[in-house]
Amino acid sequence: MATFEKGILGGFSGKVGNVVGARWRGKNVMRSLPQRGDYTPTENQILQRERFRTVVKFLTPIKGLVSKYYGKQQGDKSPYNLATSYHLKEALIEVGDDFVIDYPKVLISKGDLRGLDNPSITAAANQVVNMAWTDNSGQGNANPLDQLVVVFYAPDLEVFQVFEPAGTREETAVQLTMPAFLSGSEMTAWATFVTADNNKAAVSSYLGTVTIT
């Protein structure tokens, strides 16, 4: 891109031949038109695009949560960028010509806070999920008031249900009520602890699956 003060006919806007003129930040600028031609992506490029599409489609609905709890900015890479990179490398399974998310390897958060010990989930009536864990307060940097965050995902519906916060570390058990429309759905779940000020998070735990009744 080039700038100019006075052309033969003064400044211009639009396309003339293979040159485009415009006004940008108070200056007259010119740039050449991009080269166009036949382009056929390679098989590897197609696969990489499909991998990326699968990960982004999965993470986008919980981008806000992942952006808060997936570590710290590293250079020009945001927490969400870091989460995307991890899932591209570690949490995909190739099935024929497609890719699917490897749910046990999904991480909704990443950090140095002490995580959950012995977490479990079970279904109860009226769309309730009972969750339990062991109170490990005082071990390492675990605080009894650390907040529990739980994320459920219904693969068939491609719907997330987030409980933030769902309880505290010292409680050891909570009841989580799902929306009625999720009744009958099999849901995959993950949970983590975050500090009360949201500055630190644990590496999340995979909780398995549960069918909402």
Results as ranks from 00 to 15, higher is better:
A189M: 02
S120F: 05
N118H: 13
L182P: 01
A124C: 02
V128M: 07
E170T: 08
S185E: 07
F163V: 00
A142M: 12
F160A: 06
A123T: 14
I121L: 15
G140F: 13
D146C: 01
V100L: 11
D156W: 14
S120P: 06
I121R: 12
F152A: 09
Q139H: 15
A180L: 09
F160I: 01
L176W: 13
G184L: 11
V129Q: 07
D117V: 15
V151I: 13
R114P: 14
S183A: 07
L176F: 13
P165A: 09
L145P: 05
T134V: 12
L157Q: 14
F163T: 13
L107N: 09
L157W: 11
S183V: 14
Y103F: 14
V129P: 02
M178H: 11
G167R: 09
P179V: 02
T177L: 13
N136V: 09
S109W: 03
L116D: 05
D156H: 14
D146L: 01
D146G: 06
V174A: 10
N130D: 09
G138E: 12
L145D: 14
G115D: 01
G140C: 11
V150T: 05
A173E: 15
W133L: 06
E164W: 13
F163G: 01
T172K: 03
P179Q: 08
A132Q: 06
A125G: 12
L107C: 08
V174I: 14
I121S: 00
T172C: 02
T177I: 15
V106T: 04
N126I: 00
V150Y: 10
T188M: 07
P104M: 08
R114E: 15
N143V: 12
A125R: 06
A189V: 08
T122L: 07
E186Q: 07
V151E: 01
G184Q: 02
V162N: 06
F160D: 03
E164S: 15
V150R: 02
A132F: 00
K110I: 08
D112C: 15
W133H: 11
D146V: 00
N126H: 08
A132E: 03
A173L: 08
E171D: 12
L148F: 02
G111L: 03
Q175W: 12
L107A: 09
Q147E: 14
